[in-house]
Design a protein around this nucleic acid. Structure first.
Lengths: 336, 336
DNA sequence: AACATTATTGGAACCGGTTCCATTGTATGC
DNA sequence: GCATACAATGGAACCGGTTCCAATAATGTT
């Protein structure tokens, strides 16, 4: 592998000159520029990442921490971030694993440091697994973080999130608009902020419309297929008829639909179902799923770019507003 | 960030000694060892990845090239690889993008080189997008590659793949064993090797049992939900009744089931459906999906470890045999 | 033509590890 | 007690870039 000194020798210039050509700043005469470029071409020269990192103290790598990557939505989002980072020649690595606040709460700050030194210039913290206080502490000592799907007032410019409350409200309102008043619900994962908020928003919509939802028709899920399925079975057993079901995400909506179908209920004639996320498959389920679409990708890219700005003194454009959108398909029936 | 020289000074030893402690090879007296360890602890020392890479000429990073990473199966697999690599402190990056043989066939070798120098010690080539000849050329100049889901005789020890033919055969045989003889099929993506092979295996099973499948009942899909849906509609229009349907993967099976259901067919009473992959949701569809489970994760980990052996002179255990498994659920009905 | 400015250029020093050789200390054999 | 072998140690040189300053060339000014 050719080095900068090889190039300098071949082009009969000093290494400083080659470096200037590489970086593009510093004056270089057009004659010299040509010579150097030819030499680089001839030697098939590529600068060493390691050498650059050593002096710049930048690893050109950012980490992502805290999320499940098994769900389709998150996968799609990750993919988008990866694609976006390619342009900047920044690598994305999964930084979780060591850092497990639930196992050893005191160790998390330390392990965060270790994580950084292991090779990330910055970290995207996805979700709200870490307590806000702890995140603030981290941010104080290590400012190169952004938060995805989490909101902390004091560092709002580093936070990228949706108004899940509003989205939940929209779902509830939609069911009511369609004439439903006996409504059940399989919540998302209530230990996460977003799961909680979409649930609160949903409840508020019912409340604002004087629709009552009995305790028995609220099943606490966790976004998984499994809980969606179990939740539907549970709700059926409560002996409290309902005509509509709000699910915390599409995954649980789909498995809930399966459970209901298997038990002889027709969707949407007997029970309407509304999901949340707009997965790829949502338009191909039977019936096609009414749901709420969330521009996760745009949000994730903004979180990523904000981090790049922080880490590498760039000034990429970012956005903070991510409006959600109700997607009406056929799983909710109008019964007015 | 503390350096090795800081540690050496604090421990009153030479930098060589610290280095010896770090690497663990070279004699160090127990007294010295203790001193050095204490100093490292006190300074919260972590060796610099960049400096190490510079001298070792290893980036401790491997790349993965050539696959879609948006599907659930592939993502699950990637996740598994990342987890496995964590132990060895190796990063996994997505190396595709530049390298696009279809766009610019001549450039692919060159860009492969550039890719390597950009920071991968080795590359996992996933799938069969690149012609075998080209892969052999690459392998010749740059031996640090392994192939995932692709088979090239000459470098069989670097190839990790399933017998998709056999798996397809098992699916076909299963439908026949259950008494079906009017069978339709929505193929996988026939431009890929594995899509093609599972289809051939399926056809052979029918053939070996003297079951005929008319051209009209073979719909060429591409693994997407969309084609599964369209395929089912297409098959229904052919006016050739069938009692069983084999789909190239679970995704298309699921959307095909939706399309069939929406058109009034009950699964499995009217039409049996068998999928391929065993996605997470397969057990929660309605009805739960009979499918073929493929130990993708184990295969991927072996491909990864084989690459580690190549890149870093390790001797990790690897396996080459990955038996597939028929998962019987409720979407195939016995009609004998 | 003499001098002041500014544009180019070369290369030493440095980043933080590893490698390797020279040196010192310690144990063993006779 | 002395030679020999080997364990333990220190540190210069190096990996391949970037930074920065001194040196030189080119250009403008009077």
């Amino acid at each position: 592998m050719a080095t900068i000194r090889d190039v300098a020798k071949l082009a009969s210039v000093g290494i400083g000159t080659v470096s200037r050509v590489l970086s593009g700043n510093g004056a270089v005469s057009s004659k010299t520029l040509l010579k150097v470029n030819q030499a680089m071409e001839a030697l098939n020269f590529t600068p060493s990442r390691a050498a650059r990192s050593l002096v710049s103290k930048k690893m050109n790598t950012i980490g992502i921490w805290g999320t499940e990557t098994s769900g389709e939505i998150n996968r799609r989002t990750l993919r988008e971030m990866e694609t976006d980072l390619k342009e900047f020649e920044i690598h994305l690595i999964f930084a979780d694993g060591d850092l497990n606040s639930s196992k050893n709460p005191n160790a998390s700050r330390e392990s965060f440091d270790r994580l950084i030194s292991k090779g990330c210039d910055g970290i995207i913290i996805w979700g709200s697994d870490l307590p806000a206080l702890e995140i603030l502490q981290i941010e104080n000592e290590f400012p190169n973080i952004t938060l995805l799907n989490n909101k902390i007032e004091l560092i709002d410019d580093k936070c990228f999130y949706f108004d899940h409350y509003q989205a939940g409200y929209v779902c509830g309102q939609h069911l009511i608009d369609k004439g439903h008043s006996n409504i059940a619900c399989i919540t998302g994962w209530l230990e996460t902020d977003d799961g909680n908020q979409r649930h609160q928003g949903f409840l508020s919509a019912l409340n604002d419309n004087n629709v009552n939802i009995p305790e028995e028709l609220i099943f606490e899920g966790d976004y998984t297929y499994r809980k969606g399925y179990e939740g539907a079975l549970y709700l059926l057993k409560q002996d409290k008829p309902f005509t509509a079901l709000f699910c915390g995400n599409d995954q649980s909506a789909m498995s809930a639909i399966s459970a209901l179908s298997i038990n002889g209920f027709n969707i949407p004639n007997d029970i309407s179902v509304i999901g949340y996320d707009d997965m790829n498959i949502a338009r191909y389920t039977s019936p096609p799923l009414t749901t709420v679409r969330i521009p996760f990708n745009r949000m994730a890219v903004s979180a990523t770019r904000r981090l790049l700005n922080l880490c590498y003194n760039l000034e990429l454009n970012i956005e903070y507003d991510f409006p959600i959108q109700l997607i009406e398909r056929l799983s909710v029936k109008n019964i007015v």
